[in-house]
Design a protein around this nucleic acid. Structure first.
Length: 890
RNA sequence: GGGCGGUUAGCUCAGCUGGUCAGAGCGUCUGCCUUACAAGCAGAAGGUCAGAGGUUCGAGUCCUCUACCGCCCA
């Protein structure tokens, strides 16, 4: 039963982590009783390791999951990982590069073998980390987005959507990453404000002796211009409608078109049109049937169409184009201009918009029902303001480019006929063309955007498209906890796909957590070098402490600041619990008390333990407090107010249980008492406290609980399966709380006097309590407690009041006098003056309000009454303090 | 350009439906190694809740404007 003197979580946390998994404690069952609570993990990237943001996410999930499990829900937390197409492929390619290889040299099959080997090697890291961090998930249901079952779901979805016309293939403007050499979706492009220039270029007008000056941020694309545009409303250029200009450098004649594309208020109001390399120009090109000329290729080098610039890198080409224009006198001016430069989310290479044949999801028809379910409240976002962000995006949603020119991922199940060109999209690899029967089929080489499979995650992991028991039982999932950064990438798409494929929402609530930041409120990133490694800090402070410090900062809608100091203080809290337990166990041994767990339905009120057959005040108080804290804790978790939960339990355990309750209980221990009512009360509180704390700090609570539970047969195998305490109105004891507060006030008054008078804390002092009523009664009946905690000998005076003086502390209920030989009056005078000032202010402001007739007429009666009461108190205290000060001045 | 959020004690932040909301942790100061815990105990100091105006009997709390700082989308 004895605990080590120092709290060393490293000694027991890994053991319990392992044990939970081995025991299959968190395995869900479709047969299990109880209401269902299910949640799928936002699958981390398979090749990565977990960072502190994951730990926050997993802690919040785990708290909620453990809480539901303890409340008797049939609970599933399904874990797994994502193949993370581009991200993973990039890593492996980088490794290959170090060997002087590249994927093309290796070939598709060999390359994929390498990626799988990589996945096998690093894929377990995440699982190991999660287990170590105490995540209570069901490992028997672990999934990976490239698992055969999930791949089948992907294929099924693709085929269905294709058959419904919701997936199509076509030539459109896409974002192209010249380094990754693949198309990207709009979301995978990040925009950076970058200093650039606006180059003003003169285009000679055919048949006129003038120039049209065009401003552009990308002069190299002019090589692909097929028109220049002016606004129809722009009077300045009315005479140029229908004219042609000569494209400099290329010496090609191109038309002047009239289009809204040109904004009269921007630069010269004339814009060049490059349909192949700009999304707006692409649209304009369509409107005017302009030819498209590709001057920049897939690697970022200029194409043959770029004439003399062919083969140059696009940025080099820019320099040369500018220089050449300058030489020809066709460069009017250069202005500095900040551009929003699109970059590849993964490799940060500037993206090249270009026209390409790709696969797309038609999103509008999918978005409509997805908007509706949120409007109807069938899915709720917490915090609520994310709803608006969600709607904004959904209303303006654009088709989703889903094909990627990668090898790592789900291959697009489209087969092209070499003979008739027909496209066959099928659930099974076709042997012959669906149109002409030719066997000469070739599968599309591309794979799907990694988010395509993620979008199916809540149901593909449960066995869809089959109608499995898991799917029936656990879909829709109850809750999703994730970060705002993937609201569009993932959350929105899951909603669309869930509704489309399964016909129901994928989850009912979405809790969006904040970002973990460092002490300077900086985002954590590898390049900044301020990342906190979960395993490292876990090793250093203990998992429970790190979890606790994350939770303490996790107020909904705010970012989480995590610092060493925070983790340090959370560890101090864990240490406090540890020592409280050590103390209890020590005294249990001395008193001859065996490990004991209170019965499951422990009473809400304490057992009478006092000699007169009544219950001790401290027991009544503590049971009542426990009951209220229980209420608050349950409500906090239910509302995702994790910081409140953490703060609440911290306050309760440390500053109520340890600071007061245990201190008082020291009076009650008797040698060889055995398991008496005192012990049963104490252990009932402590054990319930452990259960309250378990979702937040699973390890220390399991460790301590198991010791209490030792050798007892009638009990759950783990605290994780024990019931979470529930509020019971019958457990409130407001009278005990009021009385205890008064006892505390007396003790604090004595301590306060002692310190302000700078008296030896070890010396027992004589004190007199003056009170006509309640305080005197309480002091009488709880003399022992007060004397012990305050270090005084107490005398009680029911009549009269002390001569005001430096050693008197006054409250509305009582006056307390410390008998001391000679008072240090200076300190006392300062204290009194300050107190008088404070009270005068309070009296003045309450008086003013009470003099306000409007207030008296319109404020609720009890507000007015309570203010009157307060004013009376303030006045009484003020009088006492003034007397004291006067006495001091004599 | 559109949207969202922030500005409360030296620091990092809570403060949910306006009326014990002026709080917590850390830090600071004073005193204690009181045998569960110095990773501790006891006590204390510290804020005109960014600024201005408004609504209200009453405003960190609601509204408007201003300043500064973030984030997202185009």
């Amino acid at each position: 039963m004895m605990l080590d003197k120092v709290y060393e979580p490293q000694r027991f946390e890994p053991r319990w982590a392992q044990w939970w998994v081995e025991q299959g404690l968190f395995r869900a069952s479709v047969e299990a009783p109880g209401p269902v609570f299910s949640l799928v993990i936002p699958p981390p990237n398979v090749t990565g390791s977990l960072h502190i943001g994951h730990m926050l996410e997993h802690t919040e999930i785990d708290v909620t999951v453990r809480w539901h499990r303890m409340r008797g829900y049939n609970t599933l937390w399904l874990p797994g990982t994502d193949h993370a197409g581009i991200a993973t492929q990039m890593l492996v390619e980088r490794a290959l590069a170090e060997e002087g290889l590249d994927r093309r040299k290796l070939g598709r099959e060999a390359f994929l073998e390498r990626v799988w080997a990589w996945k096998e090697r690093y894929g377990d890291t995440i699982k190991r980390q999660m287990i170590r961090l105490g995540a209570s998930c069901d490992w028997s249901r672990e999934r990976f987005t490239l698992d055969p079952g999930l791949s089948r779901a992907v294929r099924e979805t693709f085929v269905r959507l294709y058959e419904k016309g919701l997936i199509y293939r076509g030539e459109y403007m896409v974002n192209w990453c010249p380094r990754c050499q693949t198309a990207l979706s709009d979301l995978e492009v990040v925009h950076d404000e970058t200093p650039g220039n606006l180059w003003y270029i003169r285009y000679p007008v055919i048949g006129m002796d003038r120039f049209l000056v065009v401003a552009t941020t990308r002069p190299e694309t002019m090589l692909g211009d097929t028109a220049v545009a002016v606004n129809p409303a722009d009077e300045r250029y009315r005479d140029l409608h229908g004219k042609r200009v000569l494209l400099p450098l290329m010496n090609r004649e191109i038309p002047v078109i009239v289009d809204e594309l040109a904004r009269p208020d921007f630069a010269t109001g004339v814009v060049k049109v490059t349909p192949f390399h700009d999304p707006n120009d692409f649209e304009a090109g369509r409107r005017h049937n302009l030819p498209k000329i590709q001057v920049i290729g897939e690697t970022g080098a200029m194409t043959a169409e770029a004439g003399p610039y062919a083969g140059l890198d696009r940025f080099e080409a820019r320099r040369r184009v500018v220089a050449d224009l300058e030489q020809l006198g066709l460069l009017e001016k250069i202005e500095p201009y900040t551009v929003s430069l699109g970059k590849c989310q993964r490799c940060k290479t500037p993206v090249e918009p270009l026209v390409s044949i790709q696969w797309f999801v038609r999103t509008k028809p999918l978005a409509e029902p997805a908007i509706r379910v949120v409007e109807e409240g069938r899915i709720r976002f917490i915090p609520e303001n994310w709803t608006k962000t969600y709607f904004e995006w959904m209303y303006n949603i654009r088709d989703w480019c889903i094909s990627r020119q990668l090898w790592w991922g789900h291959r697009i199940p489209a087969f092209y006929c070499a003979d008739c060109g027909h496209t066959t999209v099928a659930r099974q690899d076709p042997q012959a063309c669906a149109s002409c029967g030719s066997p000469r089929l070739e599968q599309d080489p591309d794979v799907l955007d990694t988010w395509f499979s993620s979008a199916l995650w809540p149901f593909s992991t449960l066995g869809w498209p089959d109608d499995t028991p898991d799917l029936r039982k656990f879909y829709p999932t109850s809750l999703l906890i994730t970060g705002f950064d993937i609201l569009f990438f993932w959350v929105a798409r899951m909603i669309m796909m869930g509704l489309e494929c399964v016909g129901d929402v994928p989850f009912r609530e979405v809790y969006i957590h904040g970002l973990v930041r460092d002490a300077e409120r900086q985002k954590m990133s590898k390049t900044r070098g301020n990342v906190i490694d979960p395993l490292e800090v876990t090793e250093k402070y203990g998992t429970d402490a790190v979890r606790m410090s994350l939770l303490l900062g996790a107020a909904p809608g705010t970012d989480i600041v995590l610092t060493e100091e925070r983790m340090l203080s959370a560890r101090a809290f864990a240490n406090k619990i540890w020592n409280a337990a050590r103390f209890l166990f020590l005294h249990m041994e001395r008193c001859g008390v065996q490990p004991w767990l209170p019965p499951v339905n422990a009473p809400r009120r304490p057992e009478p333990a006092a000699p007169d057959g009544s219950a001790w005040l401290e027991d009544r108080w503590m049971f009542s407090r426990l009951n209220r804290v229980t209420d608050a804790a349950n409500r906090a978790i239910a509302r995702y107010r994790y910081h409140e939960l953490a703060q609440l339990l911290w306050q309760f355990f440390w500053h109520e249980f340890c600071d007061w309750y245990v201190e008082i209980k020291k009076l009650r221990f008797r040698e060889n008492s055995g398991l008496n009512a005192d012990w049963r009360n104490l252990l009932t509180i402590f054990e319930a406290g452990l259960r309250l704390l378990h979702p937040a700090m699973p390890f220390i609570t399991e460790e301590l609980w198991q010791r209490l539970a030792a050798n007892q047969s009638e009990r759950p195998v783990s605290i994780a399966l024990a019931p979470y305490p529930q509020y019971d109105a019958a457990g409130d004891d407001p009278e005990a709380e009021r009385q205890m507060e008064l006892v505390q006030e007396i003790v604090v008054a004595a301590r306060n006097l002692r310190t302000t008078l700078q008296l030896d804390p070890r010396q027992t002092l004589d004190a007199v309590l003056y009170s006509p009523d309640l305080a005197a009664d309480l002091a009488e009946s709880h003399r022992e407690i007060i004397e012990r905690l305050a270090g005084i000998r107490l005398e009680i005076q029911r009549e009269g009041r002390p001569t005001p003086g430096p050693a008197v502390r006054s409250t509305p209920e009582f006056d307390l006098l410390l008998r001391i030989p000679a008072a240090q009056s200076d300190a006392q005078r300062r204290r009194l003056e300050k107190e008088i000032q404070r009270l005068e202010k309070l009296v003045a402001s309450s008086q003013a309000q009470l003099d306000n007739e409007e207030f008296l007429r319109r404020a609720p009666a009890e507000v007015v009454a309570s203010l009157r009461e307060k004013l009376a108190d303030y006045k009484a205290q003020l009088a006492k303090n003034r007397e004291a000060l006067a006495a001091l001045s004599q």
